[in-house]
């Protein structure tokens, strides 16, 4: 267990290091995620050496964003002033993303065998 915790922390640290090296262009945690994925894919790290901790962490993720989410209480004025933009841009963009990704994958992907 301790080894698994170390592995996750180590990749997080490496992610932060790379993030710093490239001028903070990408969040360190996201780079850490990619590094871990690459290390697993190239069998540098064995899946069983991160598996249990990874499943635990991702399962409890909802809890982890609460402290930042509660920061919403400081953004009430911003929401009240800009609700039209927040609502409109989110709705339009979400519809476009669903349509675009679905349509494009259907056009460019391999034909699937239909069942039934």
């Amino acid at each position: 267990m301790l080894k698994q915790i170390f592995n996750i922390l180590f990749f997080y640290l490496m992610g932060e290091l790379v993030s710093w090296l490239i001028g903070g262009f990408l969040p360190g945690s996201v780079i850490g995620m990619v590094l871990l994925f690459v290390a697993l894919s190239f069998k540098v790290v064995k899946p069983c050496d991160v598996r249990d901790v990874s499943l635990h962490l991702t399962e409890q993720m909802g809890l982890f964003f609460l402290p930042a989410g509660v920061g919403l209480m400081t953004a009430v004025a911003v929401i009240a002033e800009n609700w039209a933009f927040l609502l409109l841009s989110s709705l339009i963009s979400t519809i476009l993303v669903i349509g675009m990704v679905g349509w494009m994958q259907q056009k460019t992907g391999k034909k699937e065998i239909k069942h039934g």
Binding site: L9, S29, F37, S54, L57, T58, M61, L63, P67, M73
Partner: peptide, 29 residues
């Protein structure tokens, strides 16, 4: 106030980073 709560709950907030890294394993699966 939020600043007090934020300081107090920092331990939970920190876990956000490792849990993003852990998504790398899910992606691998």
């Amino acid at each position: 106030d939020y600043a007090t709560y934020k300081t107090g709950s920092h331990l939970i907030h920190f876990m956000l980073g490792p849990s993003v890294v852990a998504l790398g394993y899910i992606l691998f699966e």
